[in-house]
C-alpha cells in the first residue's frame, strides 16, 4: 500500500478526482493548503505572493495501482506551466477500516 500526496492547482482538483474515479480509485481526502515551489511564489504586478493556494489530495492505493493513479493525476493536473504541483509517494504499513475494525496489512514493511 502506498500513500499518494498530490498537490495540485485548485481549479484542476475536480478533473483529477474524475480521472482517478475513471481509473477505479474512488476514495480520496482533500484539503486546502498554501505552498510554494522552486519559483518561490509568483510576481503579479507589484505584489509578490509566496503562498499560493493549492489543493492537497491524499490517496491510499495498493502497490499495483500506484502507476495508474499517478498517470491519472498527471494527465488531469498537467497544464505544462510552472505550478502544476507534485505527487509524493510514501509507504503505508497498515490500514484499518474503522467500521469493521479490520486491518489490511501490507507486505514486509
Amino acid at each position: 500500500m502506498k500513500l499518494l500526496r498530490a498537490i495540485v492547482r485548485p481549479d484542476r482538483e475536480e478533473a483529477v478526482a474524475n480521472a482517478l474515479e475513471a481509473a477505479g480509485i474512488v476514495s480520496l481526502t482533500k484539503m486546502d493548503v498554501l505552498g510554494r515551489g522552486q519559483q518561490r511564489g509568483i510576481q503579479v504586478g507589484a505584489s509578490f505572493y509566496d503562498e499560493i493556494p493549492k489543493v492537497q489530495l491524499l490517496i491510499v492505493v495498493e502497490d499495483a495501482q500506484v502507476d495508474a493513479a499517478v498517470a491519472a493525476i498527471e494527465a488531469a493536473a498537467k497544464t505544462g506551466q510552472y505550478g502544476d504541483g507534485k505527487i509524493f509517494i510514501s509507504p503505508v504499513e497498515a490500514a484499518y477500516t474503522i467500521r469493521t475494525g479490520r486491518k489490511t496489512m501490507d507486505g514486509p514493511a
Binding site: 510514501s90 503505508v92 504499513e93 477500516t97 474503522i98 467500521r99
Partner: peptide, 23 residues
C-alpha cells in the same frame, strides 16, 4: 492508540473512516 480510536469511532456504518499507519 489504534484500539482506542476504533473503540470510540466504530459505529458499524459507512463513513466511519480509516486509520493508516505510516513509517
Amino acid at each position: 492508540l489504534i484500539q482506542a480510536i476504533l473503540e470510540v469511532n466504530q459505529h458499524g456504518q459507512l463513513g466511519d473512516g480509516k486509520i493508516f499507519v505510516l513509517p
